[in-house]
Amino acid sequence: MAQRAPESMSISMPGGAAIDAELRPDDPGEMVELTMIEPVRRRVFECCPICGDPATSEEHVPPKRIGGKKLTLTCEPCNNRLGSYVEPDLIDWVEGAISRPLLRSDAVQGPRKEKRLLVRNTPAGEFILLVDGHAHPDLAAILASGEIDLDAVLPNWGRCKLALLKHAYLAACLTYGVLEGEVADEIRRDLVSARDAKSRQDVPMSRQAMGLTVCRTYEPTTDEPAIRAVLHEPAGAVEGVLLVGRIFVSWSSTVSEELPQVDRRVSRTLQVGPPIPGTVMSVRP
Rank of each mutant, 00 (worst) to 15 (best):
A2T: 10
M13Y: 01
E22Y: 10
E30A: 15
T35K: 05
M36C: 14
E38K: 14
E38Q: 14
P39V: 09
R41A: 14
R42L: 07
R43V: 07
D53W: 04
H60D: 02
V61D: 04
P63D: 06
R65M: 10
G68K: 03
L71C: 09
P77I: 03
L82Q: 07
G83D: 04
S84K: 02
P88T: 10
D92C: 13
A97E: 13
I98R: 06
L102A: 13
D106N: 09
G110C: 08
R116L: 15
N121C: 09
P123I: 08
G125H: 00
E126P: 00
V131T: 14
S145R: 04
S145E: 08
G146I: 13
E147P: 06
I148H: 06
A152H: 07
L154Q: 12
K161I: 02
Y169K: 04
A171R: 10
E180V: 15
I187P: 04
L191Q: 11
V192E: 07
A194S: 13
D196S: 14
D196Y: 03
R207C: 02
V214P: 06
E219Y: 02
I227W: 06
V230D: 00
A235P: 00
A235G: 11
E239V: 14
V255D: 04
S256R: 05
S256A: 08
E257T: 12
V262I: 14
V262T: 15
R265I: 11
R265F: 14
R265M: 11
V266Q: 07
G273D: 15
P274C: 00
P274V: 03
G278P: 02
G278N: 02
R284I: 05
R284W: 01
